[in-house]
Simulated assay, not measured.
Amino acid sequence: MRILFIHNYYQQRGGEDIIFEQEVAMLREAGSIVETVEFTNDGFDGSLLGTVTGAALSLYSSQSARRVEQAIDRFKPDVVHIHNLFYTATPSVIQAVKRRNIPVVMTLHNYRLVCASGMLMREGEVPCERCLTKTIPLDGIRFGCFRDSRLQSTQLTAITSLHKLTGVWRMVDRFIVLTEFARAKMLQSSLGLRPDQVVVKPNAVPDLGYADPAQREDYFLYIGRLSPEKGIHTLLAAFGATSQRLKILGDGPLKADVEKAVQQHQTIQFLGHQPRAAVVEQLKKCRALVVPSIWYEGLPTVILEAFATGTPIIYADQANLRSIVGDYGTRFLPGDAASLRQVIHEVSSGKLSDNTAQAIRGQYETQYTSAEIAHKQLFIYKNVSPAKMANEYVI
């Protein structure tokens, strides 16, 4: 299969960039012929002039459309897969692809099309769905949800609102979301999408290797950003009132709160930001991974890595995490330190069996390996372009 990927890099490298690069490599390894058209936001400097100019350029870019048309004419893809369009690429590239009568698939890594923050949350309101169903969501401007700037939030809201009004998103043949929860939210949203337009395909993670339960040590582990929506205060309050050990890996705005907790409680250890190999080693040795997030999350890579290593998971019982982890983890009430503390006690008093760890590992083997995700992705492509591929792929 011939696949043309389109991706717009942000000025700061993020998770979307990594997933885009991983998918390109994964599909090439699976035997597909893949080319890319890549854009950057280097011209958007965040100044008043840059924001005003960017607002106009982000609505429609004939230059971006031409680049994509030229790539299509040269490469002749069976399908075009878009990862990010903001800001240089613009939805003009969707129209360019459809002018060539090529199917379009687009991954939604977040809720940016319906929420200025992209996360269905804002400071003081986690989660937040004020803008989810509004065609012109003014609350995102009111609260300066994008980069804490009303000006930049106005720019983004104008872009997404106008594109909703023009119906450009309905030109996309398939939107890929990461979880069933995200699918339900997007179908509920102001985008007006059809149920058959939105499909679920998670990300893949490398096989980190199964960890023998007999080799695990007596401590719990948190890996991630140190920020309020991640439930850090709940985590610290719960472990501050137990004798159980906790290791924290990561960095973020609540670093000072974590360091204060370390000074007050000898059982809490802060390791800061660590190299990937060190993170994996800690994950394989811990008694359980704790995921205390109070926001909806997307599809946390650390949970998939816990599956890969057979690591038990303790998680906040909110809808999206429940759709990911389900009965393969132990739940507590979101934001409730006493509830988390009770679960910590229950888990620490038991012993992880090889059967349980293997069942957790089974989630990875059946759902998140590169081979499985490539299979699902090719199946999505096949269904948007059946005439070209009906005799070429057996799924």
Score class of each variant (00 low, 15 high):
I3P: 02
Y9Q: 02
Y10S: 04
Q12F: 03
D17G: 11
E38P: 00
F39T: 09
N41E: 09
G43M: 09
F44N: 03
L49E: 04
L57H: 02
F75C: 00
V79I: 01
L85Q: 06
T88Y: 00
A89P: 06
T90W: 01
K98A: 14
R99I: 08
R100A: 15
R100D: 02
V105M: 07
L108V: 12
A116E: 12
L120N: 04
M121S: 08
G124H: 07
L138N: 08
L138G: 05
C145P: 08
F146M: 09
D148C: 00
R150W: 12
R150H: 01
S153A: 06
T154K: 10
T154I: 03
I159A: 06
K164D: 05
L165Y: 12
V172T: 05
R174C: 12
L178P: 04
A184V: 05
V199R: 06
K201W: 05
P202I: 12
E217H: 12
Y219R: 02
I232V: 12
H233D: 09
L235E: 10
L236R: 07
F239P: 03
A241V: 11
G250A: 07
V258A: 09
Q263E: 12
I268Y: 01
F270H: 07
L271K: 11
P275W: 07
R276Q: 14
L289R: 04
V291P: 10
S293H: 04
I294Q: 11
I294E: 00
Y296P: 07
A308P: 06
A308D: 12
A316M: 01
I324V: 14
G326H: 11
D327A: 07
Y328I: 03
L333A: 15
S339A: 15
Q342I: 06
I344G: 10
F379S: 15
K388M: 10
N391E: 15
I395A: 02
